[in-house]
Each structure stands twice: as structure tokens, then as C-alpha cells.
């Protein structure tokens, strides 16, 4: 199962924090593992890029999250300010 498939099937979506969130109420183990692994890799990237740009990591997370949500195509899920999943 690729990330794009999971997104198109509405299983996962982009959160405002720059990390991936699980949308489905009943995720299987494989899905949970994939989301955790992707978020772990994203965090390492955020840390590296934040130091390159000379900013705190949360700036990098927040700004990436915002851009990923903007770029999410119609039909995929994004999480709004109070944690509700909205279908774009």
C-alpha cells in the first residue's frame, strides 16, 4: 500500500503539524507502521532542514504542514485547527 493510495482511499491525511494522521477509525497494523515510519523520517528531515534555514523545528513543521494541506488534491482529507478531518 503506497502513501498516495492510502491518501486517495481516505485512510490517512495531512495534519496542520506537518505530520501524517490516520483518518480511518479502524487502521490495520500495516497502516499504523507505515504512518509511524513516514512521520519518523519527516521529523528527521524537518530537523535537518530547520537547522539549514536557521529556524526552530516547529517553524519548519508548521509551514510544511500548511503547504501540504494547500497542495492536497480535492477528495483527500486534511485536519483542521480543532482536529476534525475534512475532505478537501
Amino acid at each position: 500500500l503506497s502513501l498516495d493510495d492510502a491518501k486517495q482511499q481516505g485512510l490517512v491525511g495531512e495534519r496542520a503539524t506537518g505530520y501524517l494522521g490516520i483518518v480511518t477509525g479502524s487502521p490495520n497494523a500495516e497502516l499504523k507502521r507505515m504512518v509511524d515510519e513516514i512521520n519518523r523520517k519527516r521529523q528527521a528531515l524537518y530537523q535537518d532542514k530547520a537547522s539549514k534555514a536557521g529556524v526552530a523545528i516547529d517553524i519548519m513543521e508548521l509551514r510544511t504542514g500548511q503547504r501540504l494541506q494547500e497542495r492536497a488534491p480535492a477528495g483527500e482529507y486534511i485536519q483542521d485547527q480543532n482536529g476534525q478531518w475534512q475532505r478537501k
Binding site: L45, K49, A50, K52, A53, G54, V55, I59, M60, R63, T64, R67
Partner: peptide, 10 residues
């Protein structure tokens, strides 16, 4: 600069 790093990252 932040946006520039994000572009590379993506």
C-alpha cells in the same frame, strides 16, 4: 529560506 528548504525537501 524556510520555503526554499521545503521545496528541496519535497
Amino acid at each position: 529560506k524556510v520555503d526554499r528548504e521545503i521545496d528541496d525537501m519535497l
